[in-house]
Simulated scan of single mutants.
Amino acid sequence: MTVLDGIMARKADEVAARRAARPDRELEAACRERPPARDLAAALSAPGGPVRVIAEVKRASPSAGAIAAGLDAVEQARRYAAAGAAAISVLTDGPGFGGSLDDLAAVRAAVPIPLLRKDFVLDRYQLLEARLAGGDAVLLIVAALPDEALRRLLEDAAALGLAALVEVHEERELERALAAGARLVGVNNRDLRTFAVDLAQSERLLPRLPPGVKGVAESGVRTAADARRLRAAGAVNLLVGEALVRAADPGALLRELAS
């Protein structure tokens, strides 16, 4: 069993427990009271446009361990928004990343820009949770989902007004994402099986996106030089987490990355 397999098994158990405590119909009723979701796709650049940064709020990761255990999600999100972030990614996985849906709801109350729920999504129930907490988009990881589940979650997300950032790491995953109808594709430069990071993944895969599909380079962007390297390969949207969380001045680094 890979690390990702283990995480997905844990996630299935977590979702089952939460569903038993609060069934889908309750979340569906509450979601109908939510205002319309913000448009993540519109906040991102098309090829040739200016660099846009999805800035991430997280306290830890399976690869790096503790990054900023006491991080105040709201204050960090406010720094990102003030520095011009296009959107904010909020980790809501507890055991691996130190996050929660409470973080997502608190950030929603604090900033006006689109929010991505970043988690290991395998069930429509998690889409309802994201919508209810104020999320505007969800992450769907191709490596973690069979084709039918990926298509179904894309359809369910659209029906709820949520965007879906579909994450790939290799050519076959990209093919699967496009076949399922993905319109936002994130190329994760980190291999979720080995945790090795290689910016060349974005350099290889982003140019293969068809017209009308926006791409995001994820993981491994730490410096302005990294951002320039990816921009040269056509990456105009970057998802950056650990470097911003570790930065003494995250706003200044965010502006450097987008310049």
Rank of each mutant, 00 (worst) to 15 (best):
residue 3 V to S: 12
residue 10 R to W: 11
residue 11 K to T: 11
residue 13 D to T: 11
residue 15 V to H: 03
residue 19 R to V: 15
residue 19 R to D: 08
residue 19 R to L: 14
residue 25 R to A: 15
residue 26 E to S: 09
residue 27 L to P: 00
residue 28 E to Y: 08
residue 31 C to Y: 09
residue 36 P to N: 06
residue 39 D to H: 08
residue 41 A to S: 09
residue 46 A to P: 09
residue 53 V to H: 05
residue 54 I to C: 07
residue 55 A to Y: 01
residue 57 V to H: 06
residue 62 P to H: 11
residue 66 A to I: 15
residue 69 A to H: 07
residue 74 V to I: 07
residue 74 V to S: 03
residue 79 R to A: 13
residue 81 A to I: 09
residue 82 A to D: 12
residue 85 A to S: 05
residue 86 A to T: 02
residue 89 S to H: 08
residue 92 T to G: 11
residue 94 G to S: 15
residue 98 G to R: 08
residue 100 S to V: 03
residue 104 L to T: 01
residue 108 R to A: 00
residue 110 A to N: 02
residue 117 R to P: 08
residue 120 F to W: 04
residue 122 L to T: 14
residue 125 Y to N: 11
residue 129 E to M: 05
residue 130 A to E: 05
residue 134 G to T: 04
residue 136 D to M: 08
residue 136 D to Y: 05
residue 140 L to H: 00
residue 142 V to R: 02
residue 143 A to W: 01
residue 145 L to K: 01
residue 147 D to H: 14
residue 150 L to Q: 03
residue 154 L to K: 06
residue 157 A to S: 15
residue 160 L to K: 01
residue 163 A to P: 02
residue 166 V to M: 02
residue 168 V to L: 07
residue 169 H to L: 10
residue 171 E to F: 11
residue 177 A to Y: 01
residue 184 L to K: 00
residue 186 G to F: 01
residue 187 V to Q: 02
residue 193 R to K: 14
residue 197 V to W: 02
residue 199 L to Q: 10
residue 200 A to T: 15
residue 203 E to Y: 12
residue 203 E to I: 12
residue 208 R to W: 07
residue 212 G to R: 09
residue 213 V to E: 01
residue 217 A to Y: 01
residue 223 T to E: 13
residue 227 A to S: 15
residue 229 R to C: 10
residue 232 A to S: 15
residue 236 V to C: 12
residue 238 L to I: 11
residue 239 L to F: 05
residue 242 E to A: 11
residue 248 A to V: 13
residue 250 P to G: 02
residue 255 R to D: 08
residue 259 S to G: 15
